[in-house]
Design a protein around this nucleic acid. Structure first.
Length: 587
RNA sequence: GGGGUCGUAGUUAAGAUGGUUAUAACGCCGGCCUGUCACGCCGGAGGCCGUGGGUUCGAGUCCCAUCGACCCCGCCA
């Protein structure tokens, strides 16, 4: 056989290659047999090229081409020629040319694939994941992973050029309390002992600052044994960053620079930096969530002061019980039918809301189930507060602050999707900061860190640690893109005494703190620079940059919602010998 | 742990109120076809209706359980 070495990618051939003899290797995307001439679309990662088998030109190859089926792997030698006039295919990058085959070698035959993968045929995800290696042949998926690779490469380039050092941290490490459930790995040489897979390299990057690396980054796998969602996998990737001798602004600036660099180099999109900043309190007040999508307005307005003494009991009773009444104005209320409005009540019920009131604004009042319970002045005050005009719809929710914010904050996103208020190709970033340091856990009956226990409190709030921990603000910040938290970080505690104070507030005794984090507390005593950092959710960033809805579409071999792999069938049982070697017994 | 949607040829789906042999499209196989590109035309094969139980003279269809996929709540410092 004389066919030897590939000379070109199929998808890269253009009119400029006409006349050249080329050797292509790739998969059969589709075969069109006309009895005489046979056309095959040959596919590789760069695209398609039409190759032609003509009995008059090369009878041998033409005979061989009869046996060819979908997904066979071929090597062909041939000459690039311009297509006859009128035969060009404008849908194909290489549509102006074709390759007249002079020599064919079938490198590999293929079983008929379980699903057609050469067009956007809809296939269930179960089948796709079962045969992921075939699914990954589809250009749409390849495109995502190729962009992911580029984003990773540009991330490394950016941090390298800005004086950051990539350091790898252990995957087998120590289980720590607080935070997500750990994945555990038994130690054979230490029976009864376990490593944990890292939820993030948090402590290691702080130790690296103590070691004097000054600027660290890493693109790193993290593991959290929690339930999955459309944007959550048990193993995921972070862009992890830490810097010494800095404050919040330094993190903001370097991170804005990264994101702008990535969008410019990978999407050819110019971002407006610096990004706007929003306090946690303002975000909750205006948007009901700490990760607001600010591509659209739909702001929440507090009406509690207006309806506190209303004859409408749901309002007055909630207000006197310490709850709030908030409302949202939908500009184009006419697009919502009565049925739609009732549907919104169902929607908010998943967030614990017991009901949702609505009002259509007319010139002479409202069309609303609650209209007759409100005084004309209450209606007028609400209209003024909401800046309501004819044709608007106002929705109201009365409940505890957390339910109102949760329900309306999610309803806000829901409505934006339903009414197409958010442009998919618009990228609206915002920083959210001044988070509370702690939140009270009803389940554990104690304060827990909202970010993590190494987050520095705002200095002037330190006295509150002993009197009112819930009011202590953290030097923490999240980066939010189009309503998704794509990153978060903080300025860390660099003093051992304050770190101990925080542990105590969390209900962690000195002895326990020593046992769990002794190495960090000790390290803090050996000269620790002020430091802080951030971690960006790499998969989520790639999701938004590729425009896909599922994190599984940017991960080559993702897990199902039950955290299994349909391809490898992991997790699976292990032999009794393996268990014995690890001193493990299944309970 | 909880709520919801779904499961029928290889794939995607249709199968009112239970009733002969379970449909269609694409794919697959065979034949014809020398300019197609979602090629076309003719013919054909292909099914434990996710699984197990129940109701019934009779179940793809009704009931119960169970398995699996997806979305959501809780959870995710």
């Amino acid at each position: 056989m004389t066919v030897k070495k590939r000379t070109h990618y199929c998808g890269n051939l253009t009119i400029s290659n006409v006349g050249e003899e080329v050797i292509l290797m790739g998969w059969v995307n589709r075969r069109r047999d006309h009895g005489g001439v046979i056309f095959i679309d040959l596919r590789d990662r760069e695209g398609l090229a039409q190759i032609v088998f003509n009995p008059d030109i090369n009878p041998d190859s033409h005979r061989g081409a009869h046996a060819i089926r979908s997904e066979f792997v071929l090597a062909v030698r041939g000459t690039v020629q311009g297509r006859p006039a009128g035969m060009e295919n404008p849908d194909l990058k290489s549509g102006a040319i074709e390759v007249m085959v002079t020599e064919l070698e079938i490198l590999s035959e293929a079983k008929t694939p379980p699903f057609v993968l050469n067009e956007d045929a809809e296939v269930s995800e179960t089948v796709r994941l079962r045969y992921r290696y075939l699914d990954l042949r589809r250009p749409e998926i390849q495109k995502n992973l190729i962009l992911r690779s580029k984003i990773a490469a540009e991330t490394r380039r950016y941090y390298q050029e800005n004086g950051f050092i990539e350091v790898e941290t252990p995957v087998l490490t120590k289980s720590t309390p607080e935070g997500a459930r750990d994945y555990l790995v038994p130690s054979r040489v230490n029976p009864g002992m376990f490593y944990a897979l890292p939820q993030s390299p948090q402590l290691f990057k702080q130790l690296l600052m103590i070691s004097g690396f000054d600027r660290y980054y890493q693109i790193v796998k993290c593991f959290r044994d929690e339930d999955l969602r459309a944007d959550r996998q048990p193993e995921f990737t972070q862009i992890d960053v830490e810097m010494s001798f800095i404050a919040e602004d330094d993190i903001y600036r370097i991170t804005e620079g990264l994101v702008a660099h990535l969008f410019r180099t990978c999407l050819n999109t110019k971002l407006q930096i610096p990004f706007p900043r929003l306090s946690y309190a303002d975000a909750m007040e205006m948007y009901g969530r700490d990760n607001p999508d600010i591509r659209f307005a739909l702001e929440l307005k507090d009406l509690t002061h207006i309806v506190r003494n209303s004859a409408l009991k749901v309002f007055s009773e909630v207000a006197s019980a310490g709850g709030v009444i908030k409302a949202m104005k939908i500009e184009d209320g006419k697009s919502l039918t009565r049925k739609d409005l009732d549907g919104l009540t169902d929607y908010v019920s998943t967030y614990g809301a017991k009901g949702l009131a609505w009002a259509r604004v007319n010139p002479d009042g409202w069309t609303s189930p609650i209209f007759k319970f409100l005084t004309p002045s209450e209606v007028k005050d609400i209209n003024n507060r909401m800046d309501a005009k004819e044709g608007n719809v106002i929705v109201f929710l009365a409940d505890s602050p957390s339910i109102v914010n949760d329900a309306l904050g999610n309803l806000r996103n829901h409505l934006a999707r339903k009414l197409n208020l958010a442009h998919p190709r618009q990228y609206s970033f915002t920083w959210v900061n001044e988070f509370p340091l702690f939140e009270y856990s009803d389940a554990e009956k104690r304060y827990v860190s909202k970010h993590h226990p190494f987050t520095s409190p705002v200095m002037e709030d330190i006295p509150l640690l002993s009197t009112d921990p819930g009011r202590v603000r953290a030097r923490a910040y999240d980066l939010v893109l189009n309503g998704t938290e794509i990153g978060g970080g903080s300025i860390r505690i660099h003093r051992q005494d304050i770190q101990s104070l925080i542990f105590r507030t969390l209900g962690l005794g000195d002895e326990e703190a020593r046992r769990k984090f002794g190495f960090l507390l000790e390290a803090l005593e050996y000269g620790t620079p002020p430091h802080g950092g951030i971690a960006l959710g790499f998969d989520r960033l790639v999701m938004i940059m590729t425009g896909v809805e599922s994190i599984r579409d940017v991960i080559a071999f993702p897990k199902t919602q039950k955290a299994t792999c349909l391809l490898t069938d992991a997790p699976s049982e292990v032999s009794i010998e393996q268990l014995m070697e690890l001193s493990l017994k299944i309970v």
